[in-house]
């Protein structure tokens, strides 16, 4: 099976999108698998490396899986001073203990 002329471009832009959104191949594959994708995790790795070719439907499913995951990622906002936990202990209402990675309320 030869390469579709658009395949290299589609693959490389998928890779760019994955790295920009900080999505691992494992995460992408799981999502793609849940969307009834038929290639295995290993094949998806190989496809992203340009080692094997995937049919257009599977490639589009991977793209859709990636895009759905990007759409679900909450955008990162800059916090205000009173949202920084631990900066001013007096400003945090008593009893409110949050881990540092808790999202600002």
């Amino acid at each position: 099976m030869g390469f579709d002329p658009h395949e290299p471009e589609q693959r490389s832009q998928l890779k760019d999108a994955l790295s920009a959104a900080d999505i691992t191949v494992g995460e992408l594959w799981l999502r793609y698998f849940s969307m009834s994708g038929s290639a295995g995790e290993y094949e998806v790795h190989a496809y992203l490396q340009g080692l094997i070719s995937l049919p257009v439907t599977q490639r589009d499913l991977l793209a859709l899986a990636c895009n759905e995951m990007i759409a679900e990622t909450p955008p990162k906002y800059a916090p205000y001073a009173d949202q920084i936990v631990g900066a001013e202990p007096d400003d945090v209402p008593s009893g409110e203990v949050r881990r540092r990675d808790a999202p600002p309320s």
Binding site: M35, V56, T57, D60, L64
Partner: peptide
């Protein structure tokens, strides 16, 4: 099956919805 899947993908893209 392949054509059906392509149609589903097309619908999802057109509607801005997820495949599910």
């Amino acid at each position: 099956h392949d054509q059906a899947m392509q149609e589903l993908i097309k619908n999802a893209r057109a509607a801005g919805a997820t495949l599910v």
